[in-house]
Design a protein around this nucleic acid. Structure first.
Lengths: 129, 129
DNA sequence: CTCCTAGTTGACGTAAACGTTAACCTAGTT
DNA sequence: AACTAGGTTAACGTTTACGTCAACTAGGAG
């Protein structure tokens, strides 16, 4: 019933269109974990939890964040702060990231407008042939 | 009257808080040009046009694009298409970039929501001290 | 003339994020 | 038994985007 589906490394790789090496690398630098590896074959298995982590990592990458930054952000999701000091430190980090993200959204909207403007310029300049 | 202000390399560098080396590198790979270099001292001078180009490059970088991608996008701004075929090729490129950018904005908004959610979770869990 | 500042061209070095290859293991065919 | 498919570790290679350093030059300040 509660049998959780697990994935092999190549299943995850094809699922997200990345290489197995990439997944091993993420594990190497502590961004991904493979629980319950077969003690004999040493093969990695991943749970849905790790699949979601990987998805977050790839989203972060597409958005231009470094793996280090992504690691810290995921840490935000998973941290269990002890005491008020730790909590406000985390909230401050969240706020700074939020500001950064909002700035990035604004810049992207500006870039979008720019490209639209140039595109329309081309569309309206009919070439006489 | 129409005397355009020009900048030295270190002026531009401090203006955008980057190194001179970075500027030379961008020139090296054909993303920036220094017109009218002193024939004796070989010193570079930049016009407002190049200052704007540099600004675009740095914006692109902050948004997570590679220098190659940025180069292509700037090419979009500066291209002067000959004939309908060339024009529709450029418009198609613009469209694909626009899609990409809109997707990126959406992802950023989702990330923003995620972080907000987690932040509020921490804020509302008062620690009893 | 000497020194300092600001620039120049190579050319080699480096961090991040993987790619690639070698040498090995195990499970499942044929 | 031999082969194939899919996985493992270890280690060296590669690309991007610069950093760093050496050796040189031209223009002023004193």
């Amino acid at each position: 019933m509660t049998e959780e589906k697990v994935f092999t490394i190549s299943e995850l790789a094809t699922m997200f269109d990345i290489s197995s090496r990439t997944i091993r690398y993420y594990e190497e630098i502590g961004m991904l974990f493979s629980e319950n590896r077969d003690s004999l074959t040493k093969q990695r298995t991943y749970t849905n939890r790790e699949r979601r982590r990987l998805k977050m990592i790839l989203r972060g990458k597409k958005l231009g964040f470094s793996l280090q930054e992504i690691k810290e952000m995921i840490g935000l999701y998973e941290s269990n702060p002890e005491g008020e000091a730790e909590k406000s430190r985390i909230i401050a980090f969240a706020d700074s990231k939020l500001k950064e993200i909002e700035e990035q959204i604004m810049q992207l909207q500006m870039l979008r407008e720019d490209i639209l403007t140039y595109k329309e310029k081309y569309e309206n300049s009919r070439v006489k042939t």
